[in-house]
Nucleic acid binder design. Structure first.
Length: 603
RNA sequence: GGUCCGGUAGCUCAGUUGGAUAGAGCAUCAGCCUUCUAAGCUGAGGGUCAUUGGUUCGAAUCCAAUCCGGAUCACCA
């Protein structure tokens, strides 16, 4: 049990003895004591004033007396300042924690809870390469999946690939018209970038053609419909739907190029999936559902024979679920896939990592699923994240301001190489080791940068800031870890330290002298790790972990500069500090893993 | 126009179910490498928490109104 919970429990047990009333956890608001006051944790008395009809200080005095008297192994001292009861936690309690609950704190892992969750993320289109926004999505999805696992859920990572439709045909048409048989191999271009170039080409040509038509007297609408390249594209979509062999072949060939490119990127950034859905397989799903919806009278048919659902009672609009020509719309496929997920995996919860531009769509999807009586429809959860903007404004593909994922990764790695070379600390590394280190730091910096912000919020990507490796960054945390490993290596090789195997003594006897301020601060912070994991899970928010780990690393660095481990005052102090260092390193490794960030042993 | 989200230091962000003098990082300035990795540490300056009103012992946090920014409201996906 965490110290905060223990404190609340003690208070719940104490107060009835004093005042003949019963209380719950919620009555006791516990905060960490502000540094300017004496004590470790603080209970706010104001919330009790009304029910007890006493002054805050009076209640605090009685509770403080009672706690220190009845729980001396937990609380040694108290003071009251303006209605705040500050309690000092016994050193022995912290020592016991280091001895007995060491592993619980290091990894914060909960028992399996028997619940199964699917996390769908990434969801790329096969007509262009991944960009900065996809990176936020990928890092978020992966991290949230790991956070759920750490909290005892069984997790299935899934991905829906949007591999068909008019936008895919656009790049296909452009390739047919302009490529002269060029391939990624012949041009030495990464497959997804290669295909993306033809998507851009399509838009250039399309724009030119519509402008010419408008110049010749057509309206904008007419021009957009009649542009030859668009007509060809629409024909190609029909041909695709009819399975025309040469179109299918081209489609498979070009998508194959894109997948080869994506594989490289996914591997570099460490994204993986347990199940990949392809829209070309799922786009016909949902047709049966329309039928069921008609029978259940959830849907209704309009005069032109299109099918709708009325969500005006829920404050939304009427939504079409089937066109008058009988074909399914986007949302119908989504309903079908949502149902298939439940049927195939029997999941308890279905999380969708999708940008907040689709908030409305996802709300509609969930409502329809509920109205259709789908099992667990109330456990569909849209993990809605904010857009990534640039300091100059939004990313716009038409204006060429999109930050490409591969370019960004390259830049981050190049920057980490440059910094590492300037510092010159790993001159004995061979080429392979260096390459691995540059990747670890560069990609770690990028992930941390994108995950340290609350997912819900729109965030600004500042290129200069993102390659900064000081302060609240991934490399700062990695550096702290590498520092600790350096100490532990030294300890392992030094017989004077009396820890031959590199591990500090697992049991530290009660200290003969008090814990120093920074030692205690480090233990207190470490003890909060399991609570951080839990909070991150409740909020599905990796930034909780990022903020926590940064705070821990900072606390360690202060401790490290202030107190020598090698030249500790006594042998027991040295053992304690070694143990605290190892504890910190283990938490950092565990927490950074939840963010998908790898740690170097040296840097 | 309807709905939803946001506005905290020059910049990027934290800020728990309302709690003590609103915190970090970057940037600026001043210090610290003979001792376990200076990608570090210590300190300083920097705030009308968009505005106004309300709720109460207490509001950045809750409520209302207003201002500003964004998203969305397709027989597109």
């Amino acid at each position: 049990m965490s110290i905060v919970k223990s404190l609340q429990q003690c208070a719940i047990e104490s107060l009835p003895a004093l005042f003949d009333q019963s209380f719950t956890e919620k009555d006791f608001q516990v905060n960490q004591t502000k540094p300017e006051f004496e004590g470790d944790y603080t209970v706010v008395m104001f919330s009790l004033v009304k029910s007890l009809k006493l002054s805050p200080d009076a209640i605090g005095n009685q509770l403080g007396e009672h706690l220190t008297k009845n729980y001396p192994h937990l609380f040694t001292k108290f003071n009251i300042i303006k209605g705040f009861l500050n309690l000092t936690v016994a050193d022995d309690y912290w020592m016991e924690l280091l001895n007995k609950n060491y592993n619980d704190i290091c990894y914060g892992k909960k028992e399996m809870n028997g619940k199964k969750v699917m996390v769908e993320y990434s969801s790329p289109n096969t007509n262009k390469p991944l960009h900065l926004g996809h990176l936020r999505n990928n890092f978020l999805g992966w991290s949230v999946a790991e956070i759920l696992k750490a909290n005892g859920y069984e997790v299935i990572k899934s991905c829906i690939v949007n591999d068909r439709g008019i936008h895919i045909c656009k790049s296909m048409i452009a390739w047919q018209l302009f490529a002269n048989g060029a391939t990624p191999e012949s041009t030495k271009t990464k497959g997804d970038h290669f295909v993306g170039e033809y998507y851009v080409k399509f838009n250039d040509v399309y724009k030119k053609e519509t402008e010419e038509l408008i110049a010749s007297g057509k309206t904008k609408d007419e021009a957009e419909k009649e542009a030859p390249v668009m007509k060809a594209t629409q024909q190609m979509l029909l041909d695709w739907e009819n399975g025309k062999p040469e179109v299918m072949e081209l489609w498979k060939k070009m998508n194959g190029w894109v997948y080869a490119g994506f594989d490289v990127t996914y591997k570099r950034i460490g994204s993986d999936f347990d199940k990949v859905y392809y829209e070309s397989n799922t786009y016909l799903l949902g047709k049966d559902i329309v039928q069921q919806g008609m029978e259940k009278k959830v849907f209704y048919r309009k005069d032109d024979s299109s099918i709708w659902i009325d969500l005006t009672a829920e404050g939304l609009d009427e939504k079409i679920v089937q066109r008058r020509d009988g074909t399914a719309v986007y949302i119908t496929q989504d309903i079908g896939l949502a149902l298939q997920k439940y049927e195939q995996y029997n999941i308890d919860k279905s999380i969708y990592v999708i940008g907040n531009e689709q908030n409305y769509h996802m709300k509609v999807l969930q409502l329809i699923c509920q109205k259709l009586g789908m099992p667990n429809a109330e456990n569909i959860f849209h993990l809605s994240y904010g857009m990534v903007e640039l300091t100059t404004g939004k990313m716009k593909s038409r204006e060429g301001t999109v930050v490409d994922a591969d370019d960004l990764v390259d830049e981050m790695i190049a920057t980490s190489k440059q910094h590492t070379e300037e510092l010159g600390k790993v001159k004995d590394f061979n080429e392979e080791e260096l390459k691995e280190l540059y990747d670890t730091i560069g990609i770690g910096a990028m992930k941390f940068y994108l995950l340290r912000v609350d997912p819900k919020k729109t965030m600004v990507f500042n290129p200069e800031e993102s390659i900064d490796f000081h302060g609240f960054t991934g490399p700062f945390v990695q550096y702290t870890y590498a520092r600790i490993q350096s100490i532990l290596r030294k300890a392992a090789g030094n017989e004077q330290w009396a820890v031959g195997n590199g591990q500090p003594a697992m049991t530290i006897d009660s200290m003969t002298n008090d814990l120093l301020k920074l030692e205690k601060e480090l233990i207190i912070t470490a003890e909060q790790y399991p609570a951080a994991i839990e909070q991150a899970c409740i909020e599905l928010n990796p930034s909780v972990i990022a903020n926590y780990i940064f705070h821990l690393a900072k606390t360690f660095n202060s401790f490290y500069t202030e107190h020598s481990i090698a030249n500790a005052e006594t042998e027991e102090k040295r053992q304690l500090r070694l143990k605290l260092s190892l504890l910190t390193a283990n938490i950092i490794k565990s927490g950074m893993h939840l963010l998908g960030i790898v740690l170097p042993e040296r840097m």
